[in-house]
Write a protein that binds this DNA or RNA. Sequence first.
RNA 1: GCCGGUAUAGCGUAGUGGUAGCGCAGCGGUUUUGUAAACCGCUGGUCGGGGGUUCGAAUCCCUCUGCCGGCUCCA
Length: 640
Amino acid sequence: MCAARFLTARSLPFSRSGNNDTPGTFSDIPSRICLEAKYFAFLLVFRRKQRYHIDPLRRIEMDITDEMRRHSAAHLTARAIMNLFDNVQVDIGPATDEGFYYDFDLEHRLSPEDFPKIEAEIARLVALDEPFVQKDVTAEEAKKMLAGQKYKLERLADVEASGEAISTYTVGDYAEMCRGPHVAHSAQIGAVKLMKVAGSYYRGDEKNKMLQRVYGIVGKDQAEIDAYLERMEEAKKRDHRVLGRQLALFTINDQVGPGLAHWLPRGARVRVAIEEYWRKKHYEAGYEIVYTPHVGKSNLWETSGHLSFYKEGMFPVMKVQEGDGADAYIQDYYVKPMNCPFHIQCYQFEKRSYRDLPVRYAELGTVYRYEKDGVRHGLFRVRGFTQDDAHIFCTPEQIVQEIKDTVEFAKKMLGKFGFHDIQAYLSTKPAKAVGDPARWEQATQSLRDALDQEGMTYEVDEGGGAFYGPKIDMKIKDALGRPWQLGTVQFDFNLPERFNLTYVGADGKEHQPYMVHRALLGSIERFFGILIEHYAGAFPLWLAPEQVRILPITDKQLDYAKRIQSELRAKGLRAEIDPSNEKLGAKIRNAQLWKVPYMLVAGGRDEAAGVVSVRSRADGDLGAMTLEAFLAKTAAELDQ
RNA sequence: GCCGGUAUAGCGUAGUGGUAGCGCAGCGGUUUUGUAAACCGCUGGUCGGGGGUUCGAAUCCCUCUGCCGGCUCCA
């Protein structure tokens, strides 16, 4: 039993001792996770080789990772709940990036009120400092061990089928089938705090029974738990829903409907800045901008296939009476969930020659999708949103260049918003697909070529493409290291066929053009939410809703402030005056809270000297300068 | 859709069966102010909607709606 106590050596190449001693900051979480992942991968390899040896050998020289402590805490949580409640069926309890969870099936409805006593029981079990003992067993032994645990027995059947060794861990009187690895003895787990309880379908399938999932976090001690909770508080301050209210950027109002965003003036200013940049760049890149209707007749959606493939995601039909008297009939309309059919109509406005191609139509097109209950989330998942959508129609000869240009365009656009870490994903032909295999081959190759030539690293998802064509998805990482999928470039072999798209080639015959859908920012609403969190509400100068706030010291300088404001506005800067009856300290505080990049203090001394005292949101007092000097400074900053 | 939680003034919150309170914001006044909060006063709530229990409900029960977390991390 004491074998596990050998586990003190720290000689592994990826030893993490030391690293774990410092509570992480947000910025170093990605690297920690990455390190852990590598280490964990190493462990798995290491363990696989050791598979048929017994416990002391297997875990000797192992270091204690967060992963092991979390996973072990999950076991003790299960044990504690089994000690405290009757008829508990346990399922699984893995470590997660943040902590761990465990899924249970029991009659008692777990609630946060139960947490203190469960935590006390866990703490007791931790303090017992019992060893975690690993043992490979036969299927028969495992069945005996797991008797009465129906989920575990089902999982056991899977393991048996996989041919993998059946590994078990025992701690005190509690045993379960588990791949491990675990800490050597329970005191190494440290402090455990339960965070929340939520429902979770068995095996993640909504057809199965819903289990109760308890989430928890683990710290070396209470201080580490407290530090984690503090970080959670910090993250909450960055939440775009919180900042959206504090900074008066947007509102989602139940009076109107769930998932329908309103851009308040300050949010709208940011959006206008985004859109102006977006339009300028699209014209530069050879796109034409179009505006298309928000609703269309049902036959459009029948032709496009949306009504057969996507009806659940669409708002229900609108029945409209057309015609009069005896000729009256009911026409079905649908609000659009996508822009493509309309862009196709624009393409079909005239007969196309190969000389016209490529045709690139772009639109900030607002679409509505019926997102089911329980999935809406701030601006990230809404029912009405604006796609930065475009469709490219071109000849087979043009396609490679078009894809390259699009990828290049996406990189530049995302870079402008501070996203330089872009990961691409290439999804290839699925088993069931429409379109000529040769076209798939060429299309996929053009996507590959574009990624290679742009020097972008990418992962390939074999068979992961849509039935209508291969695609590239682009994910960025925000300031907290969280990945977000934004851009997408998708071939479509389906719609040109369905809508019978053609162009006349040099041979005088009709041909079917290639069609590519692409979005760079995805949904403008969602993108805005991401930007808010990325910048923690402190937008860079070019995006800030209020770029400059002028702070007159007393109302004697109000006229001076107004002169400054009109000069700034004449230069296109978004400048406001704080005319309130407050002292300078309070005006500065307010401007800081509103995250205004520049404050211009205008007092009697400044007016007399014809200068402004500049204060930067980030760097504080920059001293007095002329308005020309300040304008030159901001112009340089906006030029970057 | 399902599981759990939650809903008190514009915002953040206190209030576990007996007259709904505080802070910020807002409004009025005093002060004319120099780099992150001057002072005094005032307004504002059918306690999310509906139903029930009770002499009496913000509080207990049912129901609807919104919001929050989860239902992807896999023995």
